[in-house]
């Protein structure tokens, strides 16, 4: 394992410590909880607060999306492990401006439990909480069982839309509805070419044999739907697009936001190679590209691979997506 590590047990705290130093113009650590990163713009009186959280190792997610008109406070977990209920509760408190707090997070067992417990804790203090659970990862469950799907990079669009809606002074129910609409409009797929290693474990806990790729892989190496011989970038891009668009069934002429994220160890230039082909495919289907993002937006330690997220836009989502924002990652 060739990594920059002191003590694996300290890795998350040291990550957060460095992060808030670099981005002190935008974020700070919560005064009472070193596992909560708070936007310098939060809380805003009378405005709905936006909270997310998740395991570490996905940087710049989740902490990188704390900022103005984005997420107000982020709960930070151990590597690939849900934040504590206390951290979610402290994040909710930090984001609370008196108009309620929307917790927008991904569909994982630990996060579901800890958010539920946190909501119970802050309810006793009179803070109203609404939740939206992201489930954009197409390969993690069949179409009929969308509620079982994992949340992956589509969460970024969900935060962006939720944050923008809150910035416009919408009510908690309106923010929740907009964030739900955003994630419902998202479909994602991941392709893995190489595994990742939790430093405390010291060896990869799954393998991707050289010359093969895992289609549909999850953000923590959850197995995909198939393992096959590694193809050319264009063929992989075509496969990813097919998986996402077959699940989506969008009419020609739909305007889209497209996100291609690296999983950590894939060279960024290769992401542009994938994007080039993906945009060509979308254009051939008659789709319009309103906005595209390419880079390491939501990673999985040093996994080799990429995810594709396609969000279908209507006028409201387009306007919310375009609202200016300032966060370390977006």
């Amino acid at each position: 394992m060739q990594r920059f590590i002191n003590n694996p047990d300290d890795l998350v705290d040291e990550t957060v410590a460095g992060f808030v130093k670099v981005h002190r113009d935008l974020v700070h650590l919560d005064a009472g909880n070193p596992r909560v990163v708070v936007s310098n713009a939060a809380p805003q009186q009378g405005r709905v607060g936006i909270v997310t959280g998740g395991g570490s190792g996905h940087e710049p997610a989740f902490i990188g999306y704390a900022g103005r008109n984005m997420v107000d406070a982020v709960a930070v977990g151990e590597l690939f492990s849900s934040p504590t209920a206390k951290s979610f509760a402290d994040a909710i408190r930090a984001a609370d401006g008196g108009a309620g707090v929307a917790v927008l997070y991904g569909n994982y067992a630990g996060d579901n439990m800890n958010v539920k417990m946190a909501a119970r804790m802050v309810a006793r203090e009179g803070i109203e909480v609404a939740t939206v659970v992201a489930n954009d990862d197409v390969c993690s469950a069949p179409p009929g069982e969308r509620a079982k799907r994992r949340g992956v990079a589509g969460e970024i669009f969900m935060w962006k839309i939720g944050g923008a809606k809150a910035a416009q002074g919408a009510s908690l129910a309106e923010v929740q509805a907009a964030a739900q609409k955003a994630i419902d409009a998202c479909r994602s797929v991941g392709v893995g070419l190489g595994p990742c290693t939790l430093p405390g474990v010291g060896h990869p806990n799954f393998q991707i044999e050289p010359g093969t790729m895992e289609v549909g892989i999850g953000h923590h190496g959850e197995p995909g739907t198939r393992v096959e011989a590694l193809k050319t970038a264009n063929e992989v891009a075509d496969d990813m697009l097919k998986i996402v668009m077959e699940d989506h069934a969008l009419p020609a002429g739909t305007e889209l936001a497209v996100l291609v994220s690296g999983l950590g160890a894939t060279p960024v230039n290769e992401l542009y190679v994938l994007y080039d082909r993906i945009e060509a495919g979308l254009t051939a289907m008659g789709m319009g590209i309103h906005r595209a993002l390419v880079g390491n937006y939501f990673t999985s330690l040093e996994m080799v691979g990429a995810t594709l997220t396609v969000m279908a836009l209507d006028a409201e989502l387009k306007a919310l997506l375009d609202l200016e924002t300032a966060s370390p990652a977006l």
């Binding site: 849900s82 209920a85 800890n114």
Partner: peptide
Amino acid sequence: LMSEIGGSMGPL
């Protein structure tokens, strides 16, 4: 477990 560990096992 509940305030420092989290994950799934922390709350359970």
